[in-house]
Design a protein around this nucleic acid. Structure first.
Length: 235
DNA sequence: GCGACAG
DNA sequence: ATCTTGTCGC
């Protein structure tokens, strides 16, 4: 895929310390498009999901980028990258740990997706600059995040039926995401926008990508493939 | 000051 | 993220 264009403008020295990361994160947040409605499900042909698996011992990791046909959910292309950890896990700075290998995987793709889905949060983040925000800015593609566990924002009860949701609200009454029930009677997921897409569209995509399981197929497949490759090189 | 804290 | 046995259900 084309990782230049609007993406190259956002690229800078990749942080190696927490202080540098905080400064870079603030810069990236300023480059994010948080107002465009972006593509509705009907306007997306290819959607890509990314994920990273880590070895329990040592610093080996494997990143996966999986492209699906947005209509049939068939896998169109897969890219895997083996690498090593270059940044520690720090709550709020996950992007600096995961994005280097994720970008490498996306660069191996021959087809250019119209939309990116990642594990974790976008603007529903302490500094409004989660993983999905930074990935969207770096690639220039519409991007949103689907997280599996709560982070910093609370919400009201969510109906048990599939498709029901409740706003994730910041202290100042700002809607920064939505807790969304993707399967009836199953723990909901946390959707938040990253770049160039609206929360409504992000939730619509999430529901279409999760017809059978709690998590979007993009995330499920990227997770399976990266984990499978990791075990192969770890043993 | 102390805990909590996406993956 | 990763570790980790059995168990309930389609």
């Amino acid at each position: 895929m084309d990782t230049h264009g609007s993406g190259s403008r956002a690229r800078a020295a990749w942080p190696r310390s927490v202080d540098e990361a905080l400064a870079e994160q603030e810069r990236m947040r300023g480059l994010a498009d948080l107002t465009s409605p972006g593509p509705a499900p009907g306007n997306v042909r290819l959607v890509a999901g990314v994920d990273v698996s880590y070895a329990r011992q040592g610093d080996a990791l494997v990143a996966a980028a999986v492209v699906l046909d947005a209509t049939t959910l068939e896998t169109v292309e897969v890219a895997l990258v083996e690498g090593t950890v270059t940044f520690p896990y720090v709550p709020g700075l996950l992007a600096f740990r995961e994005l280097p290998p994720v970008m490498a995987a996306l660069e191996k793709l021959t087809c250019g997706p119209d939309l990116l889905v990642c594990d974790g949060y976008g603007v529903a983040h302490p500094r409004r600059a989660g993983l999905a925000v930074q990935l969207g800015v770096l690639t220039g593609l519409p991007c949103f995040g689907v997280a599996k566990t709560p982070f910093v924002f609370g919400h009201q009860e969510v109906g048990e039926e599939r498709g029901y949701g409740a706003a994730l609200t910041s202290d100042d009454d700002e809607v920064v995401g939505r807790v969304l029930r993707t399967q009836p009677g199953v723990k909901p997921v946390f959707v938040s926008v990253g770049h160039a897409i609206s929360l409504d569209h992000a939730c619509a995509h999430t529901l279409r990508l999760a017809p059978r399981y709690r998590l979007p197929e993009t995330t499920r497949r990227a997770d399976h493939l990266s984990r499978e490759r990791l075990r192969a090189i770890t043993l």
